[in-house]
Amino acid sequence: MKKLLCLFAVGLLAAPATAQDASTFTTGPVFEDFGPHANVEQTEPLPADLALRHSFDVAAAAEDGRFNRGFESAARFINMHTANGVSPERIDVAVVVHGRAVQDLLTDAAWAARDLEGDANLGGDHVRAMLDAGVRFIVCGQSAAGIGVSNEDLIPGVEMALSAMTAHALLQQRGYTVNPF
């Protein structure tokens, strides 16, 4: 019995590594270059009339000039649901950004003026693609003020709220759920 339990535990530990093999992930159909997701054989298919209103809370800045992982999660959410039959018109996503992550929404000029890594905001093109697809990016005005960011410093289309707390409260009143991770 002890051997069986040990084998079961080893199997559980090995399963996540196999399940997260990069070769099982693909991008698209909305964002072809980012937002990777895995094809999953679901026990219960998604309802045909599914509509999603979901918000993401992002405070951590991108690492080493990469695209912000929190923004990527929002793109993944859209890609995986669209790939599984949910119409993009029935998916509303808002990304509430505070803390140092606000800098990941800077224009290239504002990025360069702050002497951040590189000459330009490398995630800017992805952010613009998400804005073009209807994703809302809402900046915490309190965080922006704290790090000296104004509306003019932000990629066009990015919104400024009084605070992240206010943005989340308003989104929840409008039927958005909050991503718990």
Rank of each mutant, 00 (worst) to 15 (best):
M1S: 14
M1T: 09
K2F: 09
L5N: 05
G11H: 06
G11P: 02
A14G: 14
A14W: 11
A15D: 02
A15N: 12
P16D: 05
T18N: 03
A19R: 09
A19T: 06
A22W: 01
A22R: 11
S23K: 12
T24Y: 08
F25A: 01
T27C: 12
G28K: 05
G28M: 01
G28H: 08
P29R: 13
V30L: 11
V30F: 07
V30E: 01
F31L: 04
D33M: 12
G35E: 05
G35K: 04
G35W: 08
A38P: 14
N39F: 01
E41K: 15
T43G: 10
E44R: 12
A48I: 06
L50S: 10
L50A: 10
S55F: 00
S55L: 08
S55V: 07
F56P: 07
D57M: 02
V58S: 06
A60K: 14
A61L: 03
A61N: 03
A61Y: 00
A62Y: 06
E63G: 02
G65R: 14
F67N: 08
F67R: 12
R69Y: 01
S73T: 07
A75R: 11
R76C: 05
R76P: 03
N79C: 10
M80R: 13
G85V: 03
G85I: 03
V86R: 11
E89R: 05
R90F: 04
V95T: 05
H98Y: 14
L105Q: 06
L105E: 07
L105W: 08
L106Y: 11
A110M: 11
A112R: 14
A112Y: 00
R114Q: 02
E117A: 11
G118Q: 13
L122C: 01
L122A: 13
G123Y: 04
D125N: 12
H126S: 15
H126N: 12
H126P: 02
R128D: 06
M130H: 08
M130V: 00
L131H: 09
A133L: 10
R136W: 05
R136N: 08
F137L: 04
I138S: 06
V139I: 06
C140E: 00
C140M: 07
G141K: 09
S143M: 05
A145Q: 14
A145V: 10
G148A: 12
S150G: 14
N151A: 15
N151R: 15
D153M: 04
D153T: 01
P156I: 03
G157Y: 06
V158H: 04
E159C: 07
L162F: 10
L162A: 15
L162S: 14
L162R: 12
S163R: 00
A164I: 04
T166C: 13
T166I: 14
T166S: 14
A167N: 03
A169Q: 08
Q172L: 04
Q173T: 07
R174P: 10
R174Q: 15
G175M: 01
G175V: 00
Y176F: 15
V178A: 11
P180E: 02
P180D: 05
F181C: 03
F181Y: 14
